[in-house]
Nucleic acid binder design. Structure first.
Length: 271
DNA sequence: AATCTTTCCTGCCGGC
DNA sequence: TGCCGGCAGGAAAGAT
């Protein structure tokens, strides 16, 4: 799925096309995403102007005078800006048509994404209200990570992927950040020292910043907002490298399953 | 045909 | 007993 860097890249890709523009229509071809797309969106949005766009966790927020459109790309979603005469393909479920003659199209083969409408303060929406801090904000620091893990006996990797602790750290970047911090993914979260909290916050921010700089990685489903292929392999230290030599010490990278997800680590470099 | 992918939700558990 | 936080497991759809 698109991780935070891909969502951030998508935001930067669509924002110039939507900011300040008027919606001429909405087309819903298949409303059954994770939750149903509201059936009255066309009526709600026609003639209204996009006032702003932002990202919170992996949610994209498109704000109008009278409410906010909340989008999530799920595991396989992508947004593209296209001409309005572009024929839709099989998994193109949602179009936001603009007075400029362009449209923003949501493609989501696995339909775990979401298109929702919220009136009032968008950050109070139930999906957003209880999220932890943004990983790249100053709110996310060693003190917070240390505090948040004190009562948690789960593995540190699972804690990093818990959106109540910090948002936007998905499977790839959790694995990579733990490698760079020299911390094994199985470490009980409440055993994380203050010193290691410092290191881990730094490596999380490092891997996310690098990925955003590279234009968002890398998952095979990701497509840039202009429609170009987004799949180019990033340089991973551990993710997907089971059995291959650790790039730091040569020890074979190990695989394990945590919370029904794949973890990868170097048993020599990570303790 | 089992596996992989993310996140929310349900239900269980132990502690108080 | 009831509430709470913490946690495991399940579910959604499609590609491979």
């Amino acid at each position: 799925m698109p991780e935070l860097p891909e969502v951030e890249t998508t935001l930067r890709g669509i924002a110039p096309h939507l900011q300040g523009q008027s919606v001429s229509n909405v087309v819903v071809r298949n409303a059954s995403l994770r939750w149903p797309i509201p059936s009255n969106l066309a009526t709600l949005l026609r003639g209204h102007t996009v006032r702003g766009l932002q990202r919170r966790a992996k949610y994209l927020l498109i704000t109008f005078d009278h409410g906010t459109l909340i989008l999530h790309l799920g595991m396989s979603g992508s947004l593209r800006i296209l001409a309005q005469d572009t024929p839709p393909e099989k998994h193109d479920h949602f179009d936001l048509l603009l007075a400029t003659g362009k449209l923003m199209r949501l493609r989501d083969p696995r339909r775990f994404g979401a298109v929702l409408w919220h009136t009032g303060e968008v950050l109070q929406h139930p999906l957003l209200a209880h999220l932890g801090p943004e990983p790249l904000s100053t709110d996310f620091d060693a003190r917070l990570l240390y505090q948040a893990t004190r009562t948690r006996s789960i593995a540190i990797k699972l804690a990093l992927m818990d959106s109540a602790v910090v948002v936007g750290v998905g499977n790839i970047y959790a694995n990579e950040a733990l490698f760079r911090a020299g911390i094994k993914p199985q470490l009980h979260a409440n055993k994380l020292s203050k010193a290691r909290s410092e290191t881990l916050v730094r490596t999380i921010q490092e891997v996310l910043r690098e990925a955003i700089e590279k234009g968002g990685s890398s998952l095979r489903d990701f497509i840039h907002s202009d429609g170009s292929s987004g799949y180019f392999q990033q340089h991973y230290f551990v993710y997907g490298r089971t059995g291959q030599a650790c790039k730091q010490c040569g020890t074979p990278i190990q695989h394990l399953t945590q919370g029904q997800r794949s973890s990868f680590y170097c048993p020599h470099c990570q303790r």
